[in-house]
Amino acid sequence: MPITDYDICPECDLLLKAALPKIGEKAHCPRCGLLLSHPRKRSIERTFALSIAGFILFFPSLLLPMVGVTIMGNVSTGVLYAGVIALFNDGMEAVAIVVFLASILFPLVNISLALLISGHLYFNRYHRYLTVWMRWMQNLNEWGMLEVYMLGIIVACVKLVALAQLNFGWGLYAFVALLIITTLLTSNLDNVLFWQRIEQLRKGRHHAG
């Protein structure tokens, strides 16, 4: 049997006959129960579309005001990036950098990489950095924390409700939309399929040239 007919569970190292689940089905490791693959319908097209939408939505959610508070006649508005600046000015540089990376840079890089990769696959173009992009995207995925940030907004608002008047801006609606898009993006992106397509593109290029 050729080596491609086998698979190994990444968490318990069990050698398996490669499962070929149909679209919508799931393949689990029989020994430790890890989800091995879960092919999605039109994964490349959907990833491409969702990453375009996410990339566009990123800018309003970064730049438009999200929450406005009024305390004793004083008004202030919160923007996604302003928390980073405020922490920096308070002398909390380390925390500011962590917040910047987890809530701004990594989500943006992730969406951009998904856009680049799925764009190349959609148009059947090979690029010699495709594998590097894939590796970066997989490793950064855990470090973008938009959904945790959303929960942070909710808790902050609950804490402020007692002493301030709150109103919500377009930035917050854009942020919620961005959150939905990135969640859909991660669930529609089929890593197994992407790696197979990248390998096909590379081989095709070698045969042609």
Binding site: S76, G78, V79, G83, I85, V95, V99, A102, K159, L160
Partner: peptide, 8 residues
């Protein structure tokens, strides 16, 4: 994250 929002 909550602190970064409140501080701002």
């Amino acid at each position: 994250f909550m602190i970064s929002i409140l501080v701002d």
